[in-house]
Write a protein that binds this DNA or RNA. Structure first.
Lengths: 221, 221
DNA sequence: CCGCATCCGGGGCGATACTG
DNA sequence: CAGTATCGCCCCGGATGCGG
């Protein structure tokens, strides 16, 4: 991106990460961890391959990512975030928080690309461990073709891309009712009416859901 | 901006505020408050006039700003942030925090545009009121052609564009030593060696400076 | 002077094809 | 798998014009 040529912290930040696709690339690396080029392409539907290559070069130059050759069994170059790159997390988190309500708007999600692991940030924002002393749990979420895991660890809730080894529950749902549930706009019964399904331990779900999602929704029955 | 067409909170946010100049316009409205078109132009050196007009239209459409005719003494249309627009503050704050270190890099600030009120965010990030029970103070800062005010109020430090009525101190300084002082990289004596000057009550300054800026710098004397 | 609209040149971006 | 090459479009930047 052309520089704004302003001696201002925000303008300088946007000089570096204001280019199209740049913050979305960082999003992928934050959620997925170290990625191959192809992993990034899969997580960034719509990006032109030359643009992705250009951006990775730029991001490496400014010290946000680093490329490393993975050892023999993998034999592939992996893109890592540097410490400076991970420092973008608060900015991405707050931009995502601001954008969250747009996902609930009518028409949002129609004819749009989707990956389950994109739910990791909003999920992390809204869930809490209501029984931090109980033994840790893991919940697998399948909303698109890929999967995401919600884990409790030391009273904190963590989310990440991928599958769980032995999940206490598995949620299979279109993105909207799942988001309605975790943001508290819907309770579990209402989310199920809208297409959310789960298998396994229901108490694992209620353990991490916010207050407003706890009701059994007799009012709508 | 063209939509990313992704059902993802970050992508949706960038669909709305990812266009060039958009977040800088919001920056101006956050720091300066309601602005005339010309105020925005002054605070956004380098912007093309048509782009500014386009962006204001876009921002109005998505509900981030609102235009209002000011009553007769002013007789001008003022651009306000809506509640949804003010909600961008955390994202702008964190992007600015991330970009802050770039202002200290060698060469930064040379041949770049500058406005004193751009220091409002970094100043707010770093200063604290170390004597919240004492009576409130105001410090005026003049670094470019315009001015900025640091005020204590109820134990909080506030910053805003403009001049103070009866400041307890006035700082006149190039931006870099001022930033060095408030971030704690320089103490007062070191900042003065690099061009910072002040008039008025020195204790007003030390009241709001962070720990590391408190030393009298005998080590460099 | 304020608040734009219009015009034009350049380059960032998007889509696809191709390669080691 | 990990990119490069090419091409067309449209966003953006800069200048100018213009009504209130």
């Amino acid at each position: 991106m052309r520089s704004y040529n302003q001696y201002c912290a925000l303008a300088k930040a946007l000089d570096v990460v204001g280019d199209r696709w740049t913050l979305l690339i960082v999003r992928e690396l934050i959620i997925q961890g170290p990625c191959r080029y192809t992993d990034l392409r899969n997580g960034l539907p719509g990006v032109a391959t030359n643009l992705l290559a250009d951006r990775l070069r730029d991001l490496e130059e400014v010290g946000i990512v680093r490329r490393e050759e993975a050892p023999p069994p993998v034999a592939s170059t992996l893109v890592h975030l540097t410490e400076r790159g991970r420092a973008l997390w608060p900015a991405i988190r707050e931009l995502g928080r601001w954008g969250g309500p747009l996902l609930a708007e009518p028409g949002a999600g129609e004819d749009e690309e989707f990956r389950t692991h994109w739910l990791a940030v909003p999920t992390w924002l809204h869930l809490v461990d209501r029984r931090p002393k109980d033994k840790p749990i893991a919940i697998e979420v399948r909303s698109g073709q890929d999967a995401m895991v919600i884990e409790t660890e030391g009273g904190e809730v963590r989310t990440r891309a991928g599958r769980a080894e032995a999940p206490d529950a598995v949620i299979i749902s279109p993105p909207k009712p799942f988001l309605g549930l975790i943001t508290g706009r819907l309770d579990l019964a209402q989310a199920e009416e809208r297409g959310l399904r789960y298998e396994g331990d229901a108490t694992a779900l209620t353990r991490v859901l916010p207050d407003r999602a706890q009701s059994t929704s007799r009012r709508t029955a």
